[in-house]
Write a protein that binds this DNA or RNA. Structure first.
Lengths: 246, 246
DNA sequence: CGAGTACTTGAGATTTATCAAGGAAGGTGG
DNA sequence: CCACCTTCCTTGATAAATCTCAAGTACTCG
């Protein structure tokens, strides 16, 4: 690996660690493991698959930059986005345990990844405790995020769903220093929001309009301005605890 | 602990291991850790809270018998069931990582639990690798189940949702030997199904009627007879891979 | 027998989806 | 620089799914 890559790995690792505030004690170990096991950097073009549903995977990636969707496409063609990954997130964290991915991983933008060659689970626990801890943290946090997503999809109406998603985006981008004041810069078009929230594109549009009519948030081509975060959080009944940041 | 408890722990541990087929190599270690760390057995009455949203928890439970719901109750009173736990499932597996539970854990029936005093994460990895592996497996599997739940809630209609839930119930009960041929015996009334599927009670009722009109499944007070599993699985487009059994 | 719980059914309201069409923005080749 | 194309956003009208309200029924338990 060249210098430039190494520096970027440090940065991605830093993003990762900033989320995992409650793992501070093994941060150094974690970083050492990352350096040890990171083989190469992978660039993936926008729209390309990183993993396909049902495919064996057996590798973990650390996102350096770009956006990745984990999604399922139904036989009738509808898509459900399960989660999105951004800088500092791990992909396929569960492949250590299960080998195969149950869902598609698709690059939404050009993506830069560090490939981490994870050894067997036993070796991982024995020799790479820092990474083992990160993987466990990631699995736990992702589970928590998905639980909140289940609540959203099951029991919030479209306005609350959208408001909640915007609050979450804002928090997750903040942690990696990608939140310019009150502007969410995300490569999500309205169709992406539809597939994340489990509603139709047209309804996403109308819901955004509702937010904009009330001067709460404004959608402009993958750039969302939050005009009134307080009301947004009220609508969503947002409680950031489930993200387990800090 | 008395003999009776010990025997029951063996049985619960066996249920647990049967799910984790891909962890066979550390099964013995896992069982030893369980015996080591299991302090006492806790009985919880139907309807009682095992953990409350936002409460510190810091303890893991292994379910010996009974049904537990992980759920969230919204300010307007609606409830969303995120997942259910049955014999052999671990509760609060993520509390090792995060300490606090983000959701309510409520006993749906009288429940018998083994309390497992989990040491710090570091000690866990160092000295109790079997349990560490189980916890990692559980976190990963739960994540996978929740991802599938997100898909259901987001992109399946009520008939598909119900069919999918019935297929999942059948699989999960089978693994712990609780599936009499084609009869799902579960303490779920129609309101529970509503809160699991994110729809209204009345609509659950109508959806069950639809299944019954077509001789696919029959609901009778917490006892569901599967008359045509093939068609049920077709409706749900069910693929058991996400459960990661065997 | 009465009370409570859960299930069932109908009717009308609401939310959300679908269909159809038009408009803005950005890129490309001429 | 313009004409054209594509992608995405926007809007209206209508349809479908689902919810809510209201009421009635079955069953269980004391």
């Amino acid at each position: 690996m060249q210098m430039k890559s190494t520096l970027s790995l440090e940065k991605a690792g830093e993003h990762m660690r900033r989320k995992m505030a409650n793992l501070r004690d093994i941060a150094a170990e974690q970083m050492r493991d990352l350096r040890m096991l990171t083989r190469d950097r992978v660039e993936v073009g926008a729209g390309r698959y990183i993993a396909k549903e049902g495919t064996r995977c057996g590798v973990v990636y650390l996102v350096e930059s770009g956006w990745v969707f984990r999604s399922r496409t139904m036989s009738a063609g509808q898509r459900q986005i399960i989660n999105y990954a951004i800088a500092g997130d791990l992909l396929c964290a569960d492949s250590v345990m299960f080998g195969a991915s149950g869902f598609d991983l698709i690059a939404r933008t050009p993506v830069s990844l560090f490939r981490i060659d994870v050894p067997t689970h036993a070796a991982l626990i024995e020799r790479y405790r820092g990474l083992a801890a990160s993987l466990a943290w990631t699995a736990g946090q992702e589970e928590s995020v998905l639980a909140e997503r289940v609540v959203s999809l099951g029991r919030r109406d479209s306005l609350q769903k959208l408001a909640h998603a915007l609050c979450e985006l804002s928090e997750r981008l903040s942690v990696i220093g990608k939140m310019s004041v009150d502007i969410i810069e995300a490569p999500l078009n309205q169709e992406d929001f539809a597939d994340l929230l489990g509603i139709s594109v047209i309804h996403v549009n109308r819901t955004f309009r509702k937010l904009s009519e009330e001067n709460i948030a404004e959608y402009r081509k993958g750039r969302i301005e939050l005009l009134d975060r307080k009301r947004l959080a009220e609508i969503a009944v947002f409680n950031r605890a489930y993200l387990h940041f800090e």
